[in-house]
Every structure is written in structure tokens, then in C-alpha cells.
């Protein structure tokens, strides 16, 4: 199926590939970006990519309702990610202030 015939185009295939692409972009950014703010942004992109793959895993062909458990996991992940982002940004603000004071 994978290497033979072209798989049929469905929303879960489209958005699953999107999620993996977004995760890859975030990974490259987190490793290669030079300023700290952009690195946090890149990690946030990774988390959205992972969310895409989980939401795709929960999707069912329309008449059927999607699986609620991965949805709950992604909501939990979003809240944990905003907490981690807030702490990372506070560290960035502190570091930049200390560095500027040292230079002065």
C-alpha cells in the first residue's frame, strides 16, 4: 500500500503529513535557531505537530464520532505547553536582564 498504489487522499492523511512536517520544522528550528525566543517558538511548533498526529489518530470516517481520549490528551498537552512556555520566557527575560546589567 505504502510503496505500491497511491493511498487514497483523506483528511487524516493530509493533516497527518502536515503534523509530521510541522514537527520536523520545529525540530530544525529548535536545534538551529540562534535567539532564545525563536527556539521557544520552534518547540511550540513541535508540540502543535504532535497535536496534529494525535488528533488525526482520533479521527474516524465521518458518520462515526471521533475518539475522545486523544482529544483530552491534546488539551492536557496544550495547557502543559503554555505552562512550560511561560517559565521558559521568564528565564529568558531574567537572563537578558542579567546580561545587559553585566555589560553596563
Amino acid at each position: 500500500m505504502m510503496f505500491g498504489t497511491m493511498p487514497q487522499l483523506t483528511p487524516d492523511l493530509i493533516y497527518g503529513v502536515t503534523g509530521i512536517a510541522v514537527f520536523a520544522i520545529g525540530l530544525v528550528g529548535a536545534l538551529c535557531a540562534q535567539d532564545r525566543l525563536r527556539r521557544v517558538l520552534a518547540l511550540k511548533l513541535c508540540s502543535v505537530g504532535a497535536g496534529f498526529v494525535l488528533v488525526v489518530a482520533a479521527w474516524r470516517v465521518p458518520p462515526a464520532a471521533p475518539d475522545p481520549v486523544p482529544h483530552a490528551l491534546v488539551i492536557t498537552g496544550i495547557v502543559v505547553m503554555v505552562s512550560a512556555t511561560a517559565v521558559a520566557l521568564a528565564l529568558i527575560r531574567r537572563l537578558q536582564t542579567l546580561e545587559t546589567e553585566d555589560d553596563a
Binding site: P11, D12, Y15, L37, V40, L41, K44, S47, V48, G51, V55, V56, A58, W59, R60, P62, A65, P66, H71, V74, I75, I78, V79, M81, V82, T85, A86, L89
Partner: peptide, 23 residues
């Protein structure tokens, strides 16, 4: 589009709105 309106609301409000304001 993937039938996950709860997740979409959380992402729009927390993952994008609050995170964007923090950034």
C-alpha cells in the same frame, strides 16, 4: 475539520492567544 472542536478551542484560546500574548 478533523472533528475536534474542543481541541481547536483550546488551541485557539490557550495555545495561540495566551502563548502569543506571552511571547
Amino acid at each position: 475539520r478533523l472533528a475536534a472542536p474542543d481541541v481547536a478551542l483550546a488551541e485557539a484560546a490557550i495555545g495561540t492567544g495566551v502563548t502569543g500574548a506571552l511571547l
